[in-house]
């Protein structure tokens, strides 16, 4: 070990020594990043060429469509989008709660088999919503029902994970006290864990509602109902003023939902 010649004590390195494996991994990660940037990011020339086309597209999108018949149809589609998000989030939360309990360490009634619940939650969460939407469109046909089923699965995956983490982090002392009083696992869940985790559950649910509104907007692109279908048609038929009106409406809906959930969160905090 190196020694400081003035103090004759072992040198205290300012940076921890990098072992060869970590060094190799860092180099490999750096190389992958550089290769990725070279492969898929736009070159400055290509970006420069695209900018005028983007400007031209924006020019054709303005002013947004204001035809009352179109606006009426769009409003109905927006309502359907919000309904998909609300119903999907509601049932998704209902599905996620038992999944979270079954997967939560120290609380699960499944004991060592809690991994099975964790696997289901992971499957729901890791498969992207558009893939679930394609699956449900194939299974139940085009329309809002496929969208709602997609949001249910998406919400169950999102809430299932965060509910389980909140349950695992809940106050151990109250759990132990109820356990000493003869509580069953389900008693501990509802008497101690749920009250303790309620702010976290509500926060997670509100976030999942925000995500659901955003998701339900794009699900229509693959035929799962909502405003996305109108947006897709508008672009495919080169009806750019209609597309811009839809984009503006989406912006208002998503922003409105964010404001509403922020307000609710502040009220609950």
């Amino acid at each position: 070990m190196a020694t400081d010649i003035r103090t004759e004590k072992p040198v205290m390195p300012r940076i921890a020594r990098l072992d060869p494996l970590r060094f190799a991994l860092a180099v490999a990660l750096g190389a992958l990043l550089v290769a990725s940037i070279g492969e898929v990011t736009p070159s400055p020339e290509r970006l420069a060429g695209a900018l005028p086309r983007m400007g031209s597209l924006l020019d054709r999108m303005l002013p947004p469509e204001t035809d009352p018949a179109f606006l009426g149809r769009m409003a109905m589609r927006l309502l359907e989008t919000v309904q998909i998000a609300l119903a999907g989030t509601f049932f998704g939360i209902l599905v996620s709660f038992p999944l979270a309990w079954c997967g939560a360490m120290g609380l699960s009634p499944l004991g060592p088999f809690r991994w099975a619940a964790r696997m289901v939650v992971s499957l729901f969460r890791t498969v992207p919503d558009l893939v679930w939407a394609l699956f449900f469109v194939s299974a139940v046909g085009l329309g809002a029902v496929a969208g709602t089923l997609t949001i249910i699965v998406d919400t169950a995956g999102f809430c299932g994970r965060f509910f389980a983490e909140a349950m695992e982090d809940s106050d151990r002392q109250s759990r132990e006290a109820l356990d000493a009083g003869g509580a069953r696992k389900i008693d501990i869940l509802f008497a101690a864990v749920v009250p303790d985790c309620m702010p976290s559950f509500i926060n997670t649910s509100l976030f999942s509602l925000e995500l659901a509104v955003r998701s339900s907007v794009v699900l229509g692109i693959v035929g799962a109902g909502g405003i996305g279908q109108e947006l897709k048609s508008a672009f495919e038929l080169f009806q750019y003023p209609k597309a811009s009106a839809i984009i503006l409406a989406i912006f208002v809906i998503v922003l409105g939902m964010e404001q509403l959930t922020d307000w609710l969160r502040r009220r609950i905090a």
């Binding site: 002392q173 109250s174 132990e176 006290a177 303790d196 309620m198």
Partner: peptide, 16 residues
């Protein structure tokens, strides 16, 4: 459990 009451050092109340 029917005949026993247990009190812990840190009370273990459900806070909310």
């Amino acid at each position: 459990r029917r005949q026993l009451g247990f009190v812990f050092q840190f009370h273990g109340l459900v806070r909310r």
